[in-house]
Design a binder for these strands. Structure first.
Length: 559
RNA sequence: GAGCGCGUAGCUCAGCCGGUAGAGCAUCUGACUUUUAAUCAGAGGGUCCUGGGUUCGAGUCCCAGCGCGCUCACCA
């Protein structure tokens, strides 16, 4: 279409960034089949709320989709289908919902037949679907939502379902060897929905009637025999056949899955081929691990939730985490957040000075659909180049400033770079807000305060008194001078080796400042104390001293 | 049992299409001493898990092995 797009496509075809590698598989598929559009799918079991893996799958699929569009210069239409398996039977009452008894009374029914415990939607399934959509919308993902219940009932799957019935034996031949003997004895790909109880039935099938398009089965409790059409939403499929049927019926070209599903993908692919379909392209990403290296699962509730990540860092940093090394097992826990943020920023900073080859391999390109925002460099003194402030540095700053107030952090930053303001550096400002929250939750609890001995106690009391005597709004230099004047007469802190020190006017040793940090801030090192007091405030500092001397920090500290 | 991944400096890791082994932290030395975080200069430190192969050349590619981790084999 235009010069730039085709140049970009040429670079993209050279790139070995994983989204391009994935997209190239799709390009080959399109060239093979001559198809004019490509369908991406991500699937969910809506028995719970969307979790961080859901985000990861959609984010990564979206990156592949964009890579594909770049490679094909937008000539092939793409769609992303977010498919909710809401005809699935409810197996267990989730822990984190109200009205558990209400839901519990409907165990076994499709999720779209279970009442909404939150009372907001016609069914629990629809409630969770709405949550899923709100979640995806919040991130601005481009997708189409699909409900299994609607698709089944609309007859959209009927032709494929009938074909499946006709190929029943072939499918059983694929499935049964993968099952244990006792399960294989009763396994059937079709799960009739009980016409009276509404339950999704896992029962052996008495009869497969291809001509009439139905299966016959018996209610184990009553012994009653039923004949159920496989079409029109009267039968659900077991999930592996269901996956295969969906691929075939909808023409899914791409779907990724975790490595725990490798065997399942294989089986479903075989089934798809038994239905004369072509299984989608796709790849297996590694699982996320919790702090102990265990697989993260919804039921266990371990690891990190999306909300938790977003409390401490931006959605973009989470997208970066999803981009980065999808084939390596990564711990997904609080302590990986600062590093993810800083690596994301480093790539953002590098982007403008990179050539296109490097840009296409830069995570920022994939995270921002080819259009990353400019970096925010702040300038220090004569340093014309400037530098980005890292999250790690902000955490360090928050720790030494011992402050949850973004304004205090901004104060320190402005001393470093006077031009810096929240208005000029909105991303930095947001990051500062994240940093103070991270500091509050993870850094401050680890601070180690020590008690003041008699000399220190007296010195701190003198300091407090001297601070009180300062005129209002002292400058950092005033406070700094005061600090030296208070310490100078105290033998412990005298340093005659200091530059400019005389017997009459001794220098002050570092021990004085070290003591302030350890007792007042719980840190081994700290900010220039005069600046700290000027920013933090004289009254606040005096309160800090009083609290420290009263032993408040010691009581709060872990033993 | 099968599958996936990992093994590089004391620690955490980077190393792209094969071309003289890198970063951060830590350590050491020095600068600075009204100093102390975001400083500065420099240094030491590696059998790139092992053994083969391909190659003019392998941390990188291939094969085999060793070690470690995870996942799957009931349900989704």
């Amino acid at each position: 279409m235009n010069e730039i797009a085709s140049q970009l496509a040429a670079f993209a075809s050279q790139s070995n960034a994983w989204p391009f590698e994935e997209a190239k598989k799709l390009v080959a598929r399109v060239e093979r089949t001559g198809q004019k559009q490509v369908l991406f799918e991500t699937g969910y079991g809506p028995s719970g709320l969307p979790h961080i893996g859901t985000f990861g799958e959609v984010a990564r699929t979206t990156m592949v989709r964009h890579a594909f569009e770049t490679l094909t210069e937008g000539r092939i239409a793409t769609r992303l289908l977010a498919f909710s398996d809401d005809l699935d039977g409810l197996r267990k009452v989730p822990e984190n919902i109200p009205n558990k008894e209400l839901v519990g009374a409907h165990l076994g029914k499709p999720l779209t037949q279970v009442p909404d415990p939150f009372g907001e939607y016609p069914s629990f399934g629809e409630h969770n679907n709405a949550r899923l959509r709100a979640f995806l919308d919040a991130f601005g993902f481009d997708y189409e939502f699909a409900s299994a219940t609607q698709y089944y009932q609309s007859g959209r799957f009927d032709a494929t379902l009938l074909k499946m019935l006709a190929r029943y034996d072939a499918i059983q031949e694929i499935m049964l060897p993968s099952l244990r003997a006792e399960r294989a004895a009763s396994y059937a790909p079709f799960l009739p929905i009980h016409p009276r109880t509404g339950h999704v039935m896992q029962v052996p099938l008495d009869e497969i009637d291809v001509a009439r398009g139905l299966v016959a089965w018996r209610d184990a409790e009553t012994g009653e025999r039923f004949e159920t059409p496989v079409t029109g939403g009267h039968c659900k499929l077991q999930w592996k056949p269901d996956w295969a049927m969906r691929w075939c019926a909808l023409g899914v070209d791409y779907e990724m899955a975790g490595k725990d599903l490798i065997d399942s993908v294989k089986l479903s692919s075989e089934i798809a081929r038994a239905l004369d379909g072509a299984p989608p392209e796709g790849f297996n990403y590694e699982l996320f691990l919790d702090e102990n290296g265990q697989k993260i699962s919804k039921s266990k509730g371990n690891g990190l939730t999306i909300d938790e990540w977003l409390r401490y860092a931006s959605p973009e940093s989470l997208a970066f985490f999803m981009y980065w090394k999808p084939r390596e097992a990564k711990r997904l826990y609080f302590d990986v957040i600062p590093k993810a943020v800083d690596e994301y920023l480093a790539f953002l900073d590098a982007y403008p000075r990179q050539d296109w080859k490097l840009r296409l391999g830069n995570p920022a390109w994939h995270i921002h659909a080819g259009d990353p925002p400019p970096p925010e460099f702040i300038h220090h003194g004569a340093d014309a180049k400037g530098a980005a402030i890292s999250f790690g540095m902000l955490l360090n700053l928050a720790a030494v400033a011992n402050s949850e107030d973004p304004a205090v952090l901004w104060g320190f930053l402005r001393r470093y770079a006077p031009e810096a303001t929240p208005e000029k550096f909105p991303r930095l400002d947001r990051m500062i807000h994240y940093a103070v929250v991270y500091f509050r939750d993870f850094v401050r609890p680890k601070k180690v305060y020590r008690a003041a001995d008699e000399v220190e106690r007296e010195a701190l009391e003198q300091l407090s008194t001297a601070l009180a005597a300062l005129p209002p709004g002292p400058s950092a230099e005033d406070v700094q001078t005061l600090l030296y004047d208070v310490a100078r007469p105290i033998p412990r802190y005298q340093n005659f080796a200091a530059k400019g020190a005389t017997p009459e006017k001794p220098g002050v040793s570092n021990d004085w400042f070290a003591m302030l940090y350890q007792i007042l801030l719980g840190e081994a090192r700290g900010p220039r104390f005069g600046s700290f007091v000027a920013l933090y405030g004289v009254d606040n500092t005096r309160a800090l001293i009083a609290d420290a001397l009263a032993g408040k920090f010691l009581a709060a500290a872990p033993v």
